[in-house]
Design a protein around this nucleic acid. Sequence first.
DNA 1: TTTACATATAGACGATTATCTATATAATGC
DNA 2: GCATTATATAGATAATCGTCTATATGTAAA
Lengths: 97, 97
Amino acid sequence: MNTVDFAKAIGDETRQKIMSLCCCRQLSVSEIVAQMGVTQPTVSHHLKILRDAGMVRMERRGKEIYYTLNQERLAQGCCRVAEEFAPDIDLKIDSKA
Amino acid sequence: MNTVDFAKAIGDETRQKIMSLCCCRQLSVSEIVAQMGVTQPTVSHHLKILRDAGMVRMERRGKEIYYTLNQERLAQGCCRVAEEFAPDIDLKIDSKA
DNA sequence: TTTACATATAGACGATTATCTATATAATGC
DNA sequence: GCATTATATAGATAATCGTCTATATGTAAA
C-alpha cells in the first residue's frame, strides 16, 4: 500500500470517526451505525474503504460482523509517510505494554 | 490542525510529488513545474493547499518564490494520527544528526 | 422453507476536487 | 513609465467522492 492510498483512506471525517470507535474494541456494524449520524449503507461503504486499505480487521460472529482497527497497519502507514517525506526526522515504533 | 485536514492535505498524488521534490531542498515554483506533468496554476493551487496545511515554508527571493517541505510539521501530523488512532503503539520522534 | 435480522451492493445525485485557460499581481530591468 | 518574468487567482469543467434509497446476500431461528 502506497502513501497516497493510505492518506486518502484516513482522510475523511466519517472514516476517522469509525476509526475512533473501533480503535480499541470490536464493534458490530449496527453498533457503529448507532453512534454515527449516517445510514448503514454509508457506514458499510466506508468500512469497505478501510478494509481495502487494510486498516480494519473483520470477524463474523453469527449474523453480526465485528470490526476492529488495525493499529499496527495504521502506525506503519504513518511511519511510511514520515520516512518518505521527512527523512531527516526519525519516527520509531515502540510497542507499549 | 486536525488529523482530517492533515490527511487530506497529503492525500493527493500531485501534492505528494511536490512534497518529494521540495523535501530536502528549496525549489522555486518554476523548478517544481518543470519536473511535474501539470501546469503552473495547478502547481500553485496545490502549493496553496500545502501552505494552508502548514506543510511547506515559502521564501521570496527576487521574482522567485522558493518552497521547502516542513518536515517537522509533517512528522508531527503523522504522530498525531498515530496517537489518536493507534494509542497502543508508541511513535516517537528522534531528530537525526 | 419461510421469516427476521445484519450487512453488503447497486445506482442515483449533489458536493467537492483537480485540472485547465485566461488574467491579475508582484518584482526586476530598461 | 513600460516590458518581461514569476507566481497567484478566477472561473469553467470533468472526474471523484460521500451520501442516500432500494435491493441483494448471508445467517439464524421458527
